[in-house]
Write a protein that binds this DNA or RNA. Structure first.
Lengths: 225, 225
DNA sequence: TGTACATCAGTGAACGCGCGTTCACTGATGTAC
DNA sequence: TGTACATCAGTGAACGCGCGTTCACTGATGTAC
């Protein structure tokens, strides 16, 4: 019982999409980005994303996409920008939840983990797609830059609180260490789903922070010089 | 001047491949694996590898591949097996170069880094391709297993030498930490070529080992209990 | 030593498919009179 | 208020391409006699 759902463009009796008022054709643009983003969340690979699938998900025929995006690459760039903004927003929010710099850093890391767990396809796409056109070697203009800056600042606040890091490490070096560890964990465990009896992600992250002297210690503090 | 090189199957005047003696058709099998492996070293993505390209690189027409491999997937599995074996071989060799457990561990890590730097496409493929058929959740049968075991043993030797690791960590946990860090570094820096002013890889690795109490220290040792 | 024949490694052509993209078209929306 | 017309968001059909795979075939290798 229940007809298979044959509707949308391309199917018999498909109702034509109600066309947008003049000058507001760009409304569809947002819907296309959202549709492509949703599909990428599952696929995790831009090569697997077809313009036909995006069109179908947006409830539109394929050529309609080309009114809003010159080519597939342009659509991908637009999706990437929204996903980067989302990731940065999530970790900045998490970091500003509390005042204690160590707890703040910890929450950032956990938020980063959670983003990857909840949207593995997006995490993959963020790092696996060539940087948007116009962004070259310098890291300053990369959409990841604001997020990394927040991490460095968060660690600097811990250092300012009196932590003595291992010899010769500044906040940038420590940020790189934290980021690499988190990325390795996410990529192997969540993205590649490498079969392995992994310890809990939170345990691993907290251990890594503790090893760098950035853990949230409740006793035996050596934070004061 | 100089004719464009039009030779090989499919081109005019192409010399037919000299056929192998009877019963030795499997000789071609090895050449196909080698050709596919070479191509993957550059591509880093099995989806980008075409059977036509493999055939051309092996100096043979496409259908010839199907005498040796039932399908593309079977060829990929065969390539993966050779690449995993190579990676394990390289790190085992590096670890056995010296007796000192700390220096041995350090050399393993550097060998792992070097493999990824020299064959980024292969490193990518090892972790990005679904495990060969028949290998499921248990990690024991995964081709990476022997390599990981060597890492755990190497770290255990350091612990046996008297190192006190951070509270409650055993050699397996420490091995996971080292591996995740290395993988994160390799994936972001070498595979994804993420634009960033990276510190030298060796510096990062040595710092990570030192943080875990596994560094090669020349003075101020606290290894003895 | 010579000839007829079976084997099977490798070939050339073609299959059906999904892809990104293009094109001429349709018809609701909005405006001019 | 009513009608003719311009605009342009969205459509349906098709393009050329590269892909994995299949098929009937070719012809050198090796063997039987």
């Amino acid at each position: 019982m229940g007809q298979p759902e044959l509707s949308g463009p391309g199917f018999p009796n498909s109702p034509r999409r109600r066309r947008a008022p003049k000058g507001e054709g760009h409304r569809l643009r947002g819907e296309i980005i959202a549709a492509a983003s949703d599909l990428l969340a599952d696929l995790g690979d831009p090569n697997q994303l077809s313009m036909r699938a995006v069109a179908a998900a947006a409830g539109v025929t394929t050529p309609s996409i080309y009114r809003n995006f010159a080519a597939k690459q342009a659509l991908l760039v637009a999706v990437l920008e929204t996903r980067w903004a989302e990731l940065v927003r999530v970790i900045v929010e998490a970091a500003s939840e509390v005042d204690d710099p160590f707890e703040s850093l910890r929450r950032m890391g956990h938020a980063y983990l959670r983003f990857a767990e909840e949207h593995p396809g997006h995490y993959q796409v963020l790092f696996r797609t060539a940087a948007p056109a116009g962004i070259t070697e310098g890291s300053a203009q990369h959409p990841a830059a604001p997020g990394f800056v927040v991490l460095v600042e968060s660690i600097q606040r811990c250092l300012d609180a009196g932590v003595r890091p291992p010899a010769g490490r500044d906040s940038t070096f420590l940020a790189v260490q934290v980021w690499l560890f988190l990325h390795g964990l996410i990529d192997l465990r969540i993205v590649q789903q490498f079969p392995f009896p992994w310890p809990p992600s939170e345990t691993l992250l907290d251990a890594a922070l503790a090893d760098l002297g950035l853990g949230t210690r409740r006793e035996g503090q050596e934070r004061d010089q």
